[in-house]
Design a protein around this nucleic acid. Structure first.
Length: 752
DNA sequence: ATAGGGTTAG
């Protein structure tokens, strides 16, 4: 119900654009669909190109004129199609064979080894840089005089030079082209910085900016992500009657893309068509980006299809494919990404770029079952000569994090730190992925090691093979990441201890990297390794409470108007309060037996504000350890958070709704696990007024109701989520105490 | 004589 509404609202801009009163992207673009290059001939793009070429030529062989030529061309075409079909079949066969090969690990290790081998650096010959003063127009150089030296450095002092110019007659007596030439040679930052001064000087010299002037200024602002100024510049251009070009509109559309303003982009697109300006591949690609920024993936695909159909000139290129691969990643559609990539390279004949490879790897990294493909394409990318940069490595670590491949995640981090390159050092996101690897690492719960004679908690500076003991200039801090010396971490304790050490190290050495997301990731690591006590400690010590000024309204009006608070219930297990024995029981044996982390472990040096994902992680943890009082505390804190400005500024509408629904469902499931079905059912009834809840969202409640044979609750569930699927619960499962069994595998995520 | 693309919460 609600979810459907939500879907509709998501797609509404699309329908409005297609069927709306104003002609829009889709209508205008569809109307030109009829103007295909080769109506009635379904030749693929390369063949269209061939056909064009052969029409233009009168050569021999397949280019021969007349009937014979036609036959030969047809034969050639058929051969081509046959060859392609054979190639595809061979490829498919190879792909199908693949799962039988038992080389997964080995292959991945090879891939990793290939990745880590430094490629021989062939020093590219760079031509001598030309002096700036030789590029600038003569009148400007003349007026600058000796001040021309200001710009003849590696970082030209544009501010000083323009100031000098301004006090020496400015642009007086010059042409617009001179100003434009100056702009062309200025870097984007300087263009933005000195826009006002330059326009002032132009006005003084009675020079009217032309289209190119506006283009250069708009471009600079667009690239530096300042959409407001771009839009203002465009309005100014219109007001002055300067005619825009397709470039001008492209810059404007880029601004709307940054604002994720699909409607405005649609209007601009229409306006452009009305001015009889043909949209080109860049315009369409920017429109796609706008849709993706608003998560309107369906519209993005429609524009993409349109580009393919419309003409050869607008056929998608590597830029467009990179975006669409990214669209696949957004939706977790890994197969679609693979197909698209194959389409791109084999059918359309577009050469993959670093960006397309990266986007493909990203799309593959979204799913665990594509982990091998991630490494396959990472290797291929490397073999094609593309260098790994921080972003690609970041995506690979992301894949490791998702998969729980901790060993490789740590190796990649070491690699990045050991590279000693400024542009390679891991950022906050990279570390976040590392922590997710800690969270998802599959280590045996009982690491059957009674005595552990290698105390892994001593922070040892990493000294890898080939690392010189001398600290490298400027990167000595990074070199001391307190990884355990063991190449592989075997027990949850080892994992959790290392995660904690790394976090402390980050707090001490790189505090600017420690943000809410990172601490949330550490929470996930504790939760993932079953360290619920540590989790709670972190949850209660590492975060700041919202300040009075953070609230939208004064907190005096704090009277749960939402009406979804828990009823205090007598059947709450009395033991389950923070820090009691129950908690220690819930935590795995090691924590308790060694007592290692029970006495005041120093808390994090840095505190960060909570966000919605903090609560999500906490609710998941409360679910896993069945801690209802903890869940209620989380809920209260969350309710308070919903009144803060941060809540409204950090999350947009669809995400808010999704997370709020997830939180409600978590609470329902926690209640169910604690066998408080009537309260859970009441909550469900209230929640389904606001959200469209499916059976998988509240699976625990359903299973629990079946186990307890609670027909009343089952009825409530049925009225709330519709007809219930069969759930084959086993009685044995119910009897077996699951408090300290292997990891529970209930999935709280929404899969429908 | 310009423009559009890739990492972020299992």
């Amino acid at each position: 119900m609600f979810r459907n509404n939500f879907r509709c609202s998501l797609f509404q801009p699309l329908s409005r654009i297609i069927a709306g009163t104003t002609p829009s992207i889709a209508t205008t673009a569809f109307s030109s669909l009829w103007r295909l290059e080769f109506p009635g001939r379904f030749f693929c793009v390369p063949c269209q190109a061939r056909a064009l070429a052969s029409q233009a030529w009168n050569g021999r062989g397949t280019r021969a004129p007349g009937f014979l030529g036609t036959i030969k061309r047809l034969e050639a075409h058929i051969q081509l199609i046959e060859k392609r079909a054979a190639d595809l079949a061979a490829r498919d066969a190879a792909r199908k064979r693949l799962p039988d090969l038992e080389m997964t690990e080995e292959l991945q290790d090879q891939a990793y080894a290939a990745l880590m081998t430094p490629r021989s650096e062939t020093a590219a010959f760079l031509p001598q840089p030309v002096a700036m003063s030789e590029l600038l127009p003569a009148p400007i150089i003349e007026r600058l005089g000796s001040a021309a030296a200001l710009v003849d450095t590696s970082t030209p002092a544009w501010g000083a030079a323009i100031g000098h110019l301004g006090s020496n007659g400015g642009f007086q007596g010059m042409e617009v082209v001179d100003v434009n030439c100056l702009l062309v040679n200025m870097d984007l930052e300087s263009r933005v910085e000195h826009t006002c001064k330059l326009r002032e000087m132009m006005e003084k010299a009675e020079l009217e900016p032309d289209t190119f002037t506006y283009d250069l200024l708009m471009m600079a602002h667009a690239q530096l992500k300042r959409p407001e100024e771009v839009i203002l510049l465009f309005q100014d251009l219109k007001r002055k009657g300067v005619p825009p070009t397709v470039f001008t509109y492209a810059h404007l559309l880029k601004a709307y893309s940054l604002q994720a303003d699909v409607e405005a982009a649609g209007r601009a697109f229409t306006e452009m068509r009305e001015a009889d300006i043909q949209p080109n591949i860049v315009v369409y690609t920017t429109l796609i980006q706008t849709c993706l920024n608003r998560r309107e993936v369906l519209t993005a695909w429609q524009i993409f299809d349109l580009m393919k159909l419309k003409s050869r000139a607008t056929a998608p290129d590597a830029h467009t494919f990179a975006l669409m691969l990214h669209a696949c990643a957004l939706e977790g559609e890994s197969e679609r990404a693979l197909n698209l990539f194959r389409d791109m390279t084999e059918r359309v004949g577009v050469k993959p770029t670093k960006e397309t490879y990266h986007a493909l790897i990203h799309a593959l990294a979204m799913r665990k079952d594509c982990y091998r493909e991630v490494w396959r394409y990472a290797t291929e990318m490397q073999q094609e000569g593309f260098k790994m940069d921080r972003r690609v490595l970041g995506t690979l670590i992301h894949a490791c994090g998702k998969m729980g491949d901790l060993a490789r995640a740590r190796m990649l981090i070491r690699h990045m730190l050991g590279s000693g390159r400024e542009d390679m050092i891991p950022d906050s996101v990279t570390y976040q992925c590392l922590f997710r690897a800690y969270a998802n690492a599959k280590v045996k719960r009982n690491g059957a090691r009674f005595v552990r004679d290698e105390p892994s908690e001593t922070p040892v500076p990493y000294i890898g093979p080939g690392t010189i003991l001398m600290k490298q200039e400027g990167s000595f801090e990074e070199d001391t990441i307190p990884f355990s010396q063991s190449a592989i971490l075997h027990t949850p304790s080892e994992v959790v201890e290392e995660a904690g050490r790394v976090m402390k190290w980050l707090c001490a050495v790189k505090p600017h990297l420690v943000d809410t997301q990172l601490v949330n990731a550490l929470l996930d690591a504790y939760s993932g390794q079953g360290r619920y006590l540590k989790f709670r400690k972190l949850y209660f010590t590492a975060f700041t409470d919202p300040k009075e000024s953070d609230y939208l309204r004064p907190t005096a009006s704090y009277t749960e108007a939402e009406g979804l608070t828990f009823e205090p219930s007598a059947s709450v297990p009395a033991t389950a309060t923070i820090g009691t024995d129950t908690d220690a029981d819930v935590d795995a044996g090691l924590d308790k037996n060694t007592g290692r982390d029970l006495p005041d472990e120093p808390t994090l040096r840095k505190r960060v504000p909570r966000n919605l994902y903090t609560f999500q992680a906490a609710l998941n943890c409360a679910y896993k350890c069945r801690d209802l009082p903890f869940a209620r505390k989380i809920r209260d804190a969350r309710m308070k958070y919903l009144r803060t400005k941060q809540y409204y500024s950090q999350y947009r509408e669809p995400e808010r709704t999704r997370l709020n629904m997830e939180a409600e469902c978590s609470l329902i499931n926690i209640l169910a696990r604690c066998e408080m079905l009537s309260e859970a059912a009441a909550l469900l009834q209230a929640a389904c007024q606001k959200y469209s809840i499916c059976e998988p969202d509240i699976e625990t409640l359903h299973v629990k109701a079946l186990q307890l044979d609670d027909t009343q609750t089952l009825n409530v569930i049925e009225t709330c989520v519709g007809p219930l699927p069969y759930r084959g619960y086993t009685v044995g499962k119910r009897v077996r105490p699951r408090w300290r069994g292997e990891d529970e595998v209930e999935d709280l995520s929404r899969t429908c």
